[in-house]
């Protein structure tokens, strides 16, 4: 909910999140470096630092990729989603330091330009055990850079949320490249089966989480057969099936809508938050305003408009409550259009 741009819109929650993240990253690096020195006293410190940075970034990438499906499957993970972009930028910074140190260590002292050397020093693309894994890491780093560099809300507005989200889906391409980078790297330097086991476990866990979350999402988007009245209204559910100050999502008009019950009333708005297309239907009504579960953007449920001075708006839907059932017209109104809320007949009232 922007009102002028600044570097970071700090609040108490973001500070706490970032401090926890920083503490976790520093603890990991310290443990890795000290542990490596103790277990391998002959190891070169440069290599230990290089690996500490690389593995920290890779572990953090797994956490980042797991947060989305976890939050879909269980709302208790939502707080982690709140500031995930800072986690992404932190991960990119670690990966960049790993990349720079690798470039300096392996390609920094020859006659060839280090970046050219990165691609030309090993051209065994036909060999599994000698495959040049470093270029894979380079391309992954480029993708991670693009995502980190466009993480500010200015880019979200400039590129529009669908394009921005498509660009940021590049994280899965980066993950694939990094799996190759780490896997081929292990083949050439480490052959302990436990490392391959860890790599496979991380990959399979992410796959399972994404499949479970996708199953839940698909179920929602294949709802069909709503009863329709003569005016074109669709019967979606009973009012009392919507928890008070909460919403329920339905697939109507080619996209999801969110129907909210609050203060004895019912309203329907488009489900996608204007900020990052977060699922408004999974949010709560706080102080009479629908609050996006991802970053807290708020909308008046009757108008779909953010309270002044903010200017975000989402489409609204005509709605009526008949005999305790919620009927919604599938044609959306322009964003910010006021619609009379349906009145809830509370149980026990004549």
């Amino acid at each position: 909910m922007s009102h002028g741009y600044q570097f970071v819109g700090w609040n108490r929650q973001k500070k706490l999140y970032d401090l926890t993240l920083l503490g976790a990253v520093l603890s990991y690096l310290l443990l890795f470096i000290v542990g490596s020195i103790v277990l391998h006293p002959d190891a070169v410190i440069d290599m230990i630092i290089l690996r500490a940075l690389g593995t920290c970034a890779f572990v953090l990438l797994h956490v980042i990729l797991a947060i989305g499906p976890l939050a879909r499957l269980d709302r208790r993970w939502l707080p982690l989603l709140y500031n995930r972009r800072h986690m992404g930028v932190t991960m990119f910074t670690l990966a960049l330091l790993h990349g720079l140190l690798s470039l300096l260590t392996y390609h920094g002292f020859g006659d060839t330009h280090p970046l050219v050397s990165l691609f030309t020093s090993n051209t065994r693309y036909d060999s599994l055990s000698q495959f040049p894994f470093q270029p894979l890491g380079f391309f992954a780093l480029i993708l991670l850079f693009l995502m980190a560099a466009t993480s500010h809300d200015f880019w979200l507005a400039t590129l529009t949320p669908p394009i921005w989200k498509t660009l940021h889906m590049g994280v899965y391409v980066a993950y694939g490249l990094l799996l190759g980078h780490v896997g081929f790297g292990f083949l050439q330097t480490e052959t302990h089966p436990a490392l391959f086991g860890l790599l496979a476990a991380g990959c399979l866990t992410l796959l399972a989480l994404h499949l479970a979350a996708a199953g839940k999402e698909t179920k929602l988007d294949t709802q069909d057969g709503f009863q329709q009245d003569g005016e074109g209204y669709l019967k979606l559910c009973e009012v009392l099936e919507i928890p008070n100050n909460r919403g329920r999502m339905f697939f109507v008009g080619g996209d999801r809508i969110a129907v909210f019950r609050y203060d004895g009333r019912v309203s329907a708005i488009s489900n996608a938050c204007q900020h990052q297309n977060g699922p408004l239907g999974e949010g709560r009504v706080i102080d009479g305003l629908v609050t996006c579960p991802w970053h807290g953007f708020q909308y008046d449920p009757a108008t779909g408009a953010s309270p002044p001075p903010f200017t975000e708006k989402v489409p609204t839907f005509n709605l009526k409550v008949l005999n305790g059932s919620v009927w919604v017209h599938p044609n959306p109104n322009p964003p910010g259009t006021y619609v009379n809320p349906g009145l809830v007949e509370e149980p026990g009232h004549a």
Binding site: A157, T160, G254, S270, A272, V314, N331, P332, N333, P335
Partner: peptide, 17 residues
Amino acid sequence: EPPEECSPHRCAACSAS
């Protein structure tokens, strides 16, 4: 102004208006 996002609901609402 930044470009307007075009989701199914927004596009449908815009074309109707």
